[in-house]
């Protein structure tokens, strides 16, 4: 009996593969075409590019194109900044997004929810160039909003924001949260919506308070979403939001110690050289490190909780 059942199960598994594969086929084809076919561009990272010879014909240059990422005292600073900011964004961003999502969800179907949701989503629609202008409007020394309309009337000394390193880690984190809070909270809101209402009802019958429900039910139920988002963020940990670190600090040299990231370094360094091989090398290096990290993190998640691993 047992054997027979197993056999049937096995058979049903095999049968299932084809229809399911068929459903996913359009997506798989798209991903293959859009992402895998152009993968040959990776060669550029190891080539001394020459327009006459083309991608395949150009001379191999080994790891020469990668050298510029390491042969600088900035290597440490830019790596540190890139990683630390990403860690901060992951942690603070997640906490705030969940907080906002819970608040929004608990409001129910009220009209106010619509307003709140649109309001916090709106900053995401602005490009970094424009956000750079906005931040400048608040911070510039001569006519900025904070100096002119807040510090001056209060009789406090004006601050030269763009040459003062200390506040910048906070400014960058605040701007990042400001821009992404809305989008991230919506992901969590959808996840909360997916929680079985019965669980809450049962808890309520048991006399659990609202805060208890949030900490004992809602947040634990969000764990899979948190894990998956964090894993994906870890993969991008060597990448930085270029606009945030370049446009927002107005490219101010005084702030490089806290605003230089791998992407801004590469951009500044290659602006004049315009070297396709070196920029390909930088991207490949960033991806590679992220890949190693995410594969390890994923292996760890798999060991503890295989359901929620990425792959």
């Amino acid at each position: 009996m047992k054997k027979k059942k197993e056999k049937i199960e096995k058979k049903s598994k095999l049968v299932k593969t084809w229809p399911l594969l068929l459903i996913s086929l359009p997506g798989l084809i798209y991903i293959f075409v859009n992402s895998y076919i152009p993968m040959f561009g990776v060669f550029l990272a190891f080539k001394d590019y020459n327009y006459v010879k083309g991608i395949f014909g150009s001379d191999w240059s080994g790891f020469d194109n990668f050298r510029f990422l390491f042969k600088t005292r900035d290597a440490w600073i830019m790596t540190r900044n890139t990683v630390l900011y990403n860690v901060a964004f992951i942690i603070i961003g997640t906490v705030i997004a969940i907080f906002v999502a819970i608040l929004l969800f608990e409001m129910g179907k009220k009209l106010r929810v619509k307003f709140f949701q649109s309001a916090i989503l709106l900053p995401n629609m602005l490009s970094w160039v424009v956000i750079g202008y906005v931040v400048y409007a608040f911070l510039n020394a001569d006519s900025g909003f904070i100096n002119n309309s807040i510090l001056k009337p209060l009789g406090m000394e004006e601050i030269s924001w763009y040459s003062n390193i200390k506040p910048w880690p906070f400014i960058l984190i605040i701007v990042h949260i400001w821009k992404y809070m809305g989008v991230n909270s919506i992901i969590y809101m959808a996840s909360i919506a997916g929680i079985d209402k019965g669980i809450f009802e049962a808890a309520e019958l048991d006399g659990a308070s609202k805060t208890m429900q949030i900490f004992r039910i809602t947040i634990p139920m969000l764990k899979p979403t948190i894990i998956i988002l964090t894993l994906m963020a870890i993969g991008r940990i060597f990448f930085s939001d270029f606009g945030l670190f370049y446009q927002v600090p107005q490219n101010s040299g005084r702030l490089f110690d806290v605003t230089q990231t791998i992407d801004t370094y590469v951009y500044r360094g290659l602006m004049q050289l315009n070297d396709v091989g070196m920029s390909a090398a930088a991207a490949l290096f960033q991806s590679f490190v992220g890949f190693i990290l995410v594969v390890s993190a994923n292996a760890l998640v798999r060991k503890i909780d295989s359901e929620n691993a990425l792959f």
Binding site: P38, G41, I55, V276, S287
Partner: peptide, 19 residues
Amino acid sequence: VMAFFIFFTMLFNGGIVSS
């Protein structure tokens, strides 16, 4: 296998030239 196939594209790409 599929998950890995898809995730891989999140990190690696051939760059703008080849696309």
